[in-house]
Write a protein that binds this DNA or RNA. Structure first.
Lengths: 182, 182
DNA sequence: CCACCATACGGAGAGTGTCTCCGTTTAGCA
DNA sequence: TGCTAAACGGAGACACTCTCCGTATGGTGG
């Protein structure tokens, strides 16, 4: 990749992150191009679809979900607290951008989605948490990580779309946790 | 309302229901107008925003949710079965159109939404079910109908966006039910 | 150091959808 | 039947997406 190309690529991602945070994931891509000081052609060459651009943006905080799982596992305490703590981190992270939860959660079931790789990272992070709970004998039979991702993703989606604050979301996550644990 | 106005109003709703079922809630409104045999101006006079049109479409199946609650209550059986049965009906009904669950569920938290009245009907239906469960002593302390609507709405949203079949959704609803019941 | 060319740029513009304005038509009443 | 308020509908302004292609430039071999 030529130096000027990389410069533009990085700048577009940076500007897109900002614009999407301001206006949501359906903001105008021409606006992103304009603010980044490039033509629309340049933007669309680097990112043929909106999804591709979102994918690039998400990379950084998918990594943080991975860390959050480790952090949750490092803590002492009863399984329910651990699970809830992880749920809250997860929701907070995928809600960093308006529309993010819906995007991530629906991509989980779409093998063709460009952000699929991100979902895989989220799933393996979730699996580490579930494995630990299983080892503790705290988890009900037959619980799959996909189910958990859908449940928590659903709560996050609702919270995002309704602008709910963490205190309102907490009891919802508690219901999910109680439904999952023995 | 003049007779020709009413004729057009009804025809637009009818056509919109069909078009939205085919193409989802983001279908072109000009197309709806064209198929209904009216000018765009006529459509936008009757329904200034897309939401207003959706509101009109939803009226009929909100009524059916109301009936479903009564039907669920009329059944014999343990509280868990009753709750699950109602959940499944609820999900099926608000999923009649692609994008419906997200629309309905996010409108629940938006006092300014044009489809707010519909949400109220859903909530009172839900309250009848919860009241019965409470009377049976089957419900946990402090559960609010809004919470239940959010949880089930979240599951429905995920199911809708991921095109999940009822057999896949069922275990998710079971988790929610188990988290709500004593 | 320079010339070359593959690589990248960027903007004009086609296609599509939203929504409004306003001249024309018509229902319903006196 | 004639009048008027209500309703119609389509032309068109504006916005967004995405492509095509002429122009510019970075990087490298001579």
């Amino acid at each position: 990749m030529r130096a000027d190309a990389k410069r533009n690529y990085d700048r577009i991602v940076e500007v897109a992150r900002e614009v999407f945070r301001e206006q949501g994931y359906d903001a105008s891509l021409d606006l992103v191009a304009k603010r980044a000081g490039v033509g629309p052609g340049t933007l669309y060459r680097h990112f043929p679809t909106r999804e591709n651009l979102i994918d690039a943006i998400m990379q950084s905080w998918v990594d943080r979900v991975d860390e959050a799982a480790d952090k949750a596992l490092a803590q002492e305490g009863p399984p329910r607290d651990l699970l809830l703590h992880w749920f809250e981190e997860y929701v907070a992270l995928i809600s960093l951008h308006k529309g993010g939860p819906a995007k991530i959660t629906s991509a989980m079931d779409d093998p063709a989605s460009p952000i699929r790789t991100k979902c895989e990272v989220l799933k393996t992070a979730g699996d580490r948490v579930l494995d630990w709970l299983r080892a503790e004998g705290a988890l009900r039979e037959g619980v799959e990580v996909t189910q958990v991702a859908r449940l928590v993703g659903g709560v996050a989606t609702v919270a995002d779309q309704g602008d709910l604050d963490p205190a309102t979301v907490r009891p919802l996550l508690e219901v999910v946790a109680d439904g999952l644990l023995v």
